[in-house]
Design a binder for these strands. Structure first.
Length: 485
RNA sequence: GGUGGCGUAGCCAAGUGGUAAGGCCGGAGUCUGCAAAACUCCUAUUCGUCGGUUCGAUUCCGACCGCCACCUCCA
């Protein structure tokens, strides 16, 4: 059983096989940086991140390119109201984009090309299209002649007459065909511009992706991802430009991420119903937001609500509790010892069951992700094992520490692919170390009180520590503590 | 008008031509000095409605109802 991807181009689930054995080239349409990104934008970025992580987990070498649209009408307009330059605005928001996505645990792409740094490449591509008769110049702007590409509409399945019937197509009398779109926009007075053979101007949106994808990944790329709203016209136009220029398929697998909704409607910037990713990150740990965003399959709409985030928070707490309990086995058992854990004569049924549950989780996880990156199902496989582990810990008769250690390693390995466990682990540990001795002392005193059934003192210590976000649990093996938020 | 999608327990959400993963919330227990955590049991003979195909459909087909999106910038 291999990996299958739903290809928007064929509208079918297809067996995935990259152009070059073992290597995957992937392009993801990035943000237009006129503002911070909202959680809806983050969904697409996160799915891209997880597809990449999973492909790597499966052994592929992935090259991911994600563009930054740093010049367009909205940037110009926003910069004007703020009284700063477009460049300044783009730079500030571009920086913010990386801050936000990295807080969410999204790994940077291998290349993050900016439109303004690829003007010559775009001019070259436009010129090529003019030379081929696929574009025409009017008043310093260059338009793509949709009629010159007879496969136009193959991605979105739109027929010319359908488009014309829609009353919402902007009528520009200068264009030969209402469907034609601009690849180069002549600058109006006062607008930022770049020199070109057709006069000063700036690139159109679609040309930048064609040009930068081909520059960094070649004429044919394996996977092209983006939000479903980009399917038309953006991706349709990318195909038209690129394929007419090269005569080769532009992207082999088109992946489109469904919308994040809020109150049943699409979360969108023009809707003004969005929540910035950074706002959400201030309220919830990154893992919680990630868990929420992958709790439905990427091709299905997902509704944002406080309640949903809380559900994810509770679910993740369950996962964390389990892993924290397992962690000590992992720390006590050297990894090498794990290899030979088959055997002993006194091997219990619980132990056997747990071992097989670990294998089951592994294969169910892979099957789920192989089925067009079904993250919701994949998460289910993880929680099934969590349940098994908890039962085994509860009974704990005849379960080898090795088995628990092995469960810990497998679970954390899988969680890494989805990024739902300690993705930004680094700072908390040193803080914990500093507190360690101090809290151990308090726990010792408390244990003394408990031995004398002095519950007042015992509970006081627990309650006061709780106020300091330190939670104590009494178990059979003594008391444990941890930071909570 | 054109195109596409969705409707599964109180909520969120997988899934399959043979009778429903997982999570959350709630209730009752077990454990515990009490908490916390965990465990057990309870919570869909049923998958929007009505028909059809089939030995059998939630899963295939058709109609209908409801919701959403794209066709204009938007992940």
């Amino acid at each position: 059983m291999g990996l299958k991807i739903y290809n928007s181009l064929s509208r079918q689930l297809e067996e995935f096989s990259p152009l070059m054995d073992g290597h995957v080239s992937m392009y993801s349409c990035g943000p237009t940086v006129y503002d911070y990104i909202h959680i809806g934008n983050a969904r697409t970025a996160l799915i891209t991140d997880i597809i990449r992580r999973y492909l790597e987990y499966r052994g592929y070498a992935v090259k991911l390119v994600q563009n930054l649209t740093d010049i367009d009408d909205k940037i110009i307009a926003r910069a004007k109201t703020l009284g700063i330059s477009s460049g300044q605005l783009a730079q500030t928001n571009g920086k913010a984009y990386f801050e936000d996505t990295q807080r969410l645990g999204i790994q940077p792409a291998d290349v993050h090309p900016k439109a303004t740094e690829h003007i010559p490449e775009m001019i070259e591509l436009i010129q090529m299209l003019i030379d081929k008769g696929a574009a025409y110049v009017i008043d310093g702007s260059v338009y793509y002649r949709v009629n010159s590409f007879n496969e136009y509409g193959k991605l979105s399945r739109r027929k010319p007459e359908d488009l014309l019937a829609g009353a919402r197509v902007e009528v520009d009398e200068r264009k030969e065909d209402p469907r034609d779109f601009d690849m180069w926009k002549a600058a109006k007075p006062g607008e930022p511009s770049w020199d070109s053979p057709w006069g000063p101007g700036r690139p159109g949106w679609h040309i930048e992706c064609s040009s930068m994808a081909m520059k960094h990944l070649g004429e044919t790329i394996d996977i092209h991802a983006g939000g479903e709203d980009l399917l038309f016209p953006h991706h349709e136009n990318e195909i038209a430009q690129s394929e007419l220029a090269t005569g080769k398929p532009f992207a082999r697998y088109w992946v489109h991420v469904a919308f994040l909704k809020i109150d049943g409607r699409r979360m969108g910037k023009s809707e003004e119903n969005f929540i910035f990713l950074r706002e959400a990150l201030d309220r919830y740990p990154a893992e919680v937001i990630r868990h929420f965003l992958i709790s439905a399959h990427y091709r299905h709409p997902l509704d944002y609500s406080l309640e949903s985030l809380q559900k994810s928070e509770s679910a993740l707490k369950r996962l964390n509790n389990c892993l924290e309990t397992l962690q000590k086995y992992h720390e006590e058992i050297p990894v090498v010892a794990e290899i030979d854990n088959a055997t002993p004569s006194n091997v219990s049924e619980t132990n056997m069951n747990l071992l097989s549950a670990i294998d089951t989780m592994q294969s169910r996880f892979t099957d789920a992700m192989d089925a067009d990156f079904n993250s919701a199902q994949a998460v289910g496989s993880i929680f099934s094992l969590v349940s098994q582990v908890n039962k085994a810990i509860g009974s704990s008769n005849g379960v080898f520490p090795d088995t628990f250690a092995s469960a810990y390693r497998k679970l954390t390995e899988i969680c890494q692919v989805l990024g739902i466990y300690k993705i930004n682990e680094d700072n908390t540990d040193t803080t914990a170390e500093n507190y360690d001795a101090l809290i151990e002392l308090l726990l010792e005193i408390r244990q003394g009180a408990r031995d004398q059934k002095d519950w007042d003192t015992s509970d006081k210590i627990r309650d006061r520590l709780k106020q300091l976000n330190i939670e104590i649990k009494d178990t059979h093996d003594g008391s444990t503590w941890k930071f909570v938020s």
